[in-house]
């Protein structure tokens, strides 16, 4: 297994280079002129800007040279300047990263935990009404467009019932806590402001639920299948034979084994989470990378959208690698090899 992970580590830079290459290819095929992808259509009239961009990205040089410059710029963290915010894309992304991470982590936790519980229950009561209901609920979760369920839930819980706050990370007039981690829930706790903590947590609930529902659907389906497989194993009978009660059998014996294949899927749901985050952030006016990407796409802010795409690809690669490592650690048969 160590060898497998090392192989994956070696493949990482090549995949990264591949991502950059595809990004280069896309931005070079932007409706004829790659220059548009750097400075945008409106600036094409401005000769100074055009000349500066040409020099910086080497657009007057040959294609291989351009490619080398592109790769060089990206590897030093230079994604260009956003047409919309007029700031370096890398800086924009860094500023917005914590908001996205806070949302994605909350959604992943909520979705995985509920998905695991639902999957265990469905497997335990296989083919009963509970099982069918749990599976339908999960299926609806992964079939509902988040940009719609977000709107509906926002309407129901915020407008109609008034239980939860509206969009945003905090109420419009609230000052955010001092930035330490960038996670508002954690920062408000660190600064000892419980009022603020409550507020940020309440704001987090709806978007995390909307996003987590997708994850729950995927996780519960897989947990159910692997639980069914595990529950028919000899060691489950053996555990019962030594006097283990139902809950212990389900969670201590069966789930621990069923979690091994599930881990892969939880890593895999990261892709869904990014997709979901893009749309959820837009609905909930969440100032993260997802809403940044949508704003960029809507305004044809090419440097920004390419930056998000590359960073998203990198995050995706990283999450896959972490999943592999987690998988190896979860299964002693692999870990010790």
């Amino acid at each position: 297994m160590t060898r497998y992970i090392i192989r994956r580590l070696i493949a990482m830079p090549f995949l990264l280079l591949g991502i950059i290459t595809i990004a280069f290819f896309i931005s070079h095929n932007t409706r004829g002129d790659p220059l548009i992808s750097i400075i945008g259509e409106r600036q094409m009239e401005n000769p100074d800007v055009v000349a500066a961009a040409k020099a910086r990205w080497g657009l007057d040089k040959s294609l291989p040279e351009q490619y080398a410059i592109y790769v060089g710029n990206l590897t030093t963290g230079d994604f260009g300047t956003s047409l919309r915010t007029k700031r370096p894309v890398a800086q924009d992304l860094l500023d917005r990263l914590p908001a996205t991470l806070e949302l994605v982590i909350a959604a992943m936790l909520a979705g995985s935990l509920t998905g695991i519980v639902l999957g265990v229950i469905a497997a335990r009561f296989r083919d009963s009404g509970i099982d069918h209901l749990a599976r339908l609920w999960a299926l609806i979760g992964s079939s509902t467009p988040v940009f719609w369920s977000g709107l509906i839930l926002l309407y129901v819980f915020s407008v109609a019932l008034g239980w939860l706050p509206g969009p945003g990370r905090l109420n419009a007039r609230t000052l955010p806590p001092e930035t330490i981690t960038g996670f508002l829930t954690i920062d408000s706790l660190l600064s000892g402001n419980l009022q603020l903590f409550r507020e940020s947590l309440y704001h987090l609930i709806l978007p995390a639920l909307v996003l987590g529902w997708t994850v729950m659907g995927i996780v519960s389906r897989l947990v159910r299948v692997s639980m069914l497989d595990v529950l028919s194993q000899d060691y489950i009978v053996a555990a019962r034979a030594r006097g283990a009660r139902e809950l212990r059998v389900l969670f201590n014996h069966a789930l621990r084994n069923a979690m091994i294949p599930t881990l892969t899927i939880i890593g895999f749901t990261f892709a869904y989470l990014i997709t979901g985050a893009v749309l959820t952030e837009t609905i909930f006016s969440w100032p993260g990378i997802g809403s940044y990407a949508v704003d960029a796409a809507r305004n044809l802010d090419y440097p920004a959208i390419m930056g998000v795409t590359i960073v998203g690809g990198m995050a995706f690669l990283l999450s896959n690698l972490l999943t592999d490592i987690a998988y190896a650690f979860a299964d002693p048969r692999i870990r010790l090899r």
Binding site: I19, A23, F316
Partner: peptide, 10 residues
Amino acid sequence: SFPPILLAMA
């Protein structure tokens, strides 16, 4: 390696 929606958006 790309998250589908980001690649599609780009």
